[in-house]
């Protein structure tokens, strides 16, 4: 990471600390925002958060590694999370899965070379009545079929 990138990240985190406070309870909201902006929480960002909250870097790392929606390594600009729970599975998850893999040319838990897309599975999205469902960044899409799933990807590009 370049020095100016580090500096701007430090500034950014300091602003977040000002907003959420220095209590440990501010940790997750801060990490969520960093994740959202950068698609992951870098090693440097984790250390900065730790420094400013006066906790150990490994504690931040431990928390990041616990939650599915926080990432330690760079992800694609867009993250597709396909629900793999049984209701969606029965509603045709597998076809969507294949279509997404083919369309993006990657497997699940992988990121495209251009860093635009990451495919992930997720546990129940709470859309069981409208499955199969997937989350693309912050948006939920339901009642998918392979064509619409691919269409959504193309529209998001």
């Amino acid at each position: 990471m370049l020095v100016y990138e580090k500096n701007s990240l430090s500034d950014e985190i300091e602003v977040l600390i000002e907003k959420f406070g220095k209590e440990r309870s501010a940790l997750l909201p801060i990490l969520q925002i960093i994740e959202k902006r950068h698609n992951y929480i870098s090693e440097f960002a984790q250390q900065e958060v730790a420094r400013l909250l006066d906790i150990h870097p490994v504690e931040v790392y431990s928390v990041v590694s616990f939650y599915n929606f926080l990432h330690r390594y760079p992800q694609g600009k867009n993250i597709v999370r396909l629900c793999k729970t049984i209701s969606c599975d029965m509603a045709g998850k597998r076809e969507i899965e294949e279509a997404l893999k083919r369309e993006l040319g990657i497997n699940f838990d992988e990121t495209t070379r251009d860093k635009k897309w990451t495919l992930e599975y997720t546990s129940c999205l709470g859309m069981c009545d409208q499955g199969p469902a997937m989350l693309v960044n912050d948006k939920v899409y339901t009642k998918l079929d392979p064509e619409t799933a691919v269409q959504i990807i193309n529209d998001t590009k």
Binding site: I55, H56, P57, V58, E59, Y61, S62, S65, F66
Partner: peptide
Amino acid sequence: GVLEAISR
């Protein structure tokens, strides 16, 4: 603070 539980 070197060691912690990692992952889930």
